[in-house]
């Protein structure tokens, strides 16, 4: 076992004639949290899909412990790498417990009977995500935050050592975003699960990730510790955004504050809105 969980080796992927990923090289460390950031349509989700074998590379390879993932049996790979897509669809009328149980799919044979260890895995996933009390509820009746925890529970029931998540915090309120990211961090710390996630929010990415990867135009622009990646120059080059970097008062990790066109307007900043009203 090396300390590299997944390695991308000159990976190129495209849809039709259009290349999306162009000769990517990247090593994702085992037992760490990696966050991938980048502007829209830079290939973040495509990268995640290529790593879970959903897309076949044009050239290059994705290596899991040195073995090419496209050479592995689908079921076997699904016991190593779990994927939570961006907006998963729950079948109508399914209960939390049934949905989480579906995470056991790659562990069961064609006519495989449900075993004791499957129940144990489902119970463990429910416990870790705090969704045990919801087990008999219908997924469609849950709040967005609860539902996202249920999907994560399903991915946990799959019992993989690598978990790929495509924007797991989209459409969630800020408190639920923190809740989900804290939960993923718990998993990483307690079980050593390697977590690779695409995140939209740069400050949350810098705060929760051990390794931050910035992508632009189908290439890796920068990859490294958050403080070396989340810098003003990267924000200009990748997002075309003028911003200042300050230290997060809670974690001392880098935090970016956009300047914007009206950011430093002394005339307006001086007026307190309530004073103005009276």
């Amino acid at each position: 076992m090396t300390d590299i969980a997944l390695k991308l080796d000159r990976l190129s992927v495209g849809y039709g004639d259009f290349p999306v990923l162009d000769g990517l090289d990247l090593s994702l460390p085992r037992g760490r949290i990696t966050a991938i950031v980048g502007a829209n349509a830079c290939g973040k989700s495509t990268l995640l899909r290529a790593m879970s074998r959903l897309l076949k590379p044009r050239s290059g390879r994705v290596l899991l412990d040195g073995v090419e993932i496209h050479a592995m049996a689908p079921r076997k790979l699904a016991r190593r790498i779990g994927l939570l897509p961006q907006s998963p669809v729950a079948p109508e009328g399914i209960t939390v417990f049934d949905l989480v149980s579906r995470g056991r799919h790659p562990h069961q044979g064609m006519f495989g009977r449900w075993r004791r260890e499957d129940d144990a895995a489902v119970a463990e996933a429910l416990r870790l995500t705090g969704t045990g009390p919801l087990a008999e509820r219908l997924v469609e009746d849950l709040s967005g935050g609860q539902r996202q925890r249920v999907w994560i529970a399903m991915a946990l029931a799959q019992q993989t050592d690598i978990l790929l998540l495509d924007e797991p915090t989209t459409f969630l309120d800020i408190n639920h975003q923190i809740e989900v990211l804290d939960l993923l961090t718990d998993l990483n710390r307690e079980r050593g699960t390697t977590i690779v996630m695409v995140l939209h929010d740069l400050n949350l990415a810098a705060r929760y990730a051990d390794l931050l990867v910035a992508m632009a135009h189908g290439r890796i622009h920068a990859a490294g510790l958050p403080r070396t990646v989340l810098v003003e120059r990267m924000l200009v080059e990748v997002f075309g955004l003028d911003a200042r970097i300050v230290a997060d008062p809670v974690t001392a990790k880098p935090m970016m504050v956009p300047v914007g066109r009206h950011g430093a307007d002394p005339a307006r900043a001086a007026i307190h809105p309530m004073e103005n009203a009276s």
């Binding site: 959903l54 699904a78 790498i81 994927l83 897509p85 079948p91 579906r102 799919h105 790659p106 064609m110």
Partner: peptide
């Protein structure tokens, strides 16, 4: 009947099904 679990997993979308090891 032999493919019933794969079929149900496929109903959750291609990405999810592939992630769960369905060919």
């Amino acid at each position: 009947l032999a493919l019933r679990r794969d079929l149900e997993t496929l109903a959750m979308g291609d990405d999810m099904a592939a992630g769960l090891g369905v060919p």
